[in-house]
Design a protein around this nucleic acid. Sequence first.
RNA 1: GCCAGGGUAGCUCAGUGGUAGAGCAGAGGACUCAUAAGCCUUUGGCCGCGGGUUCGAUCCCCGCCCCUGGCACCA
Length: 512
Amino acid sequence: MADFYITTAIDYVNGLPHVGHAYEKVLTDVIARFRRLMGDSVYFLTGTDEHGQKVQQTARARGVPPRQFADEVSAEFRAMLPRLLISNDDFIRTTEERHKRVVRELLQRLFDKGDIYRGEYRGFYSTRQEQFLLEKDRNPDGSWPDIYGEVTQIAEPNYFFRLRSYQEWLVEFLARNEGFVFPRFRQKQVTEFLKDPLNDLCISRPRERLEWGIPLPFDPSFVTYVWFDALANYYSAVADRPGVWPAALHVIGKDILVPPHAVYWPIMLHAAGLALPRGLLVHGWWLTSGAKMSKSAGNAFNPLELVDEFGADALRYFFIREMNVGQDGDFSRELFLVRYNSDLANDLGNLVNRVLNMTSRFAGGAVPAAGAEGEAELELRALWEATSRDYVALFGQYQFHTGLERLFAFVRSINAYVEKRAPWKLGKSADPADRALLQTSLAVMAEALRLASAALRPVMPGATATIDGVLGSRPSGAWLDELAWGGRLAGAKVSPALVLFPRPLPAAGKAP
RNA sequence: GCCAGGGUAGCUCAGUGGUAGAGCAGAGGACUCAUAAGCCUUUGGCCGCGGGUUCGAUCCCCGCCCCUGGCACCA
């Protein structure tokens, strides 16, 4: 059983992981962790897409069998997951038997039903590249680029899927389910696309041209082409797990919404008599506007370098804080460092440090119980009530960047509260009223930090676990209860001060 | 060309039919528990351009300009 089955797109193994891959995993993971904390039973799938022309060609060029090549690259993608603290439950490869079996079943079912038929594919073919070309492959003047060599128009038999006969159904489905695609404007794009008549979809390639694929069960001289292979992973991974399908959410990039995920996939499922996913979440891309400031060496850098340097939590925070889901975002080392320094090191990390330090110095290392609350305490508490309520609601609507903005405004308010009470002054006073206020202020700052940490857990699972640990907090019970202001830490033994997010050393040895 | 998104302070962005906001960067100040961090104050904007509706528009309508992406049998 699963209340919330969530997937990333599977990654094509013809290239190595880059920022976009890392972002999609992190975004999906944040949603998965959030849903788990909200009490859902979550099943989280990711994986790799491994068949096809390009893999076959690249493998051949390297002189290795496609299977071996796919193994190597798939392993790279897989290795990235733990480094980003991704909490996936499963990892599917389209070369696995469990996948191929389901693909064959799906194809056979549709073939028997008459939704797949044999026809003829016509197009421009490049013998040198061994592939059909598209109109967009042409030069602006209509000629074909030299890399294709001689281009001829040929026809070959192939199998087709009756997309067209389901177009009307899909249009109606989308009209009835306005929130199927998030953000809304993406669904409008789908609707626009469907205003023109669909052509049936060519779903096969003759084996003489493409061997690296899944043979059609009803005609082994063909393999199935990308659509029925790659898209089916979402279903094949859980076909043997009762109660998991349909997916609650497919997280994908905007490049593969129309037509694959918004047109082909729903029609494939509907034709096969399977339930549709409940929604698609379409994210944008990270752009490197720094094309102009590309003098500095590292404009094309691996996101995992930032993980090595600053930790997975920091990169995850940047991804989620900086990107408005659905829009594009700017990615550069400079932007990352601004977020890291100001939000993580200065605001949050330093707060952790000073809370621990003051608790040790002024309360013997145990969080005191709060006494009577004054105006400053009530204000901070009221801010938390509003912040936590909005934060949870915003996360539910995929407005993570706004949620984090609000949460860090709260973190800054904790810092302001500390300044207002100035425990270091109270600690020098012998006045009983000051002593009481000292206890209260230490309790309140620790509690506020505990709450901020709990809220941040889906985004920064590592760092927040550390914060919980050093505060002597043991998360238990429902997350929403944890997010309620209370006195949970009274009596907790805190650890000695630590530096959670060290400020990077100033760049040494700059080029003259 | 068609469709969509965006064009708001130096940078990244939020925002509402009624004298424009946050963070970062810049300037000044008080403090010291802390990662020279945090806190307080502050400089700074014909809200892309031109029309229109309105008592009044950054926000509504029309046109235009610029940036980004998609336009299918492509992973």
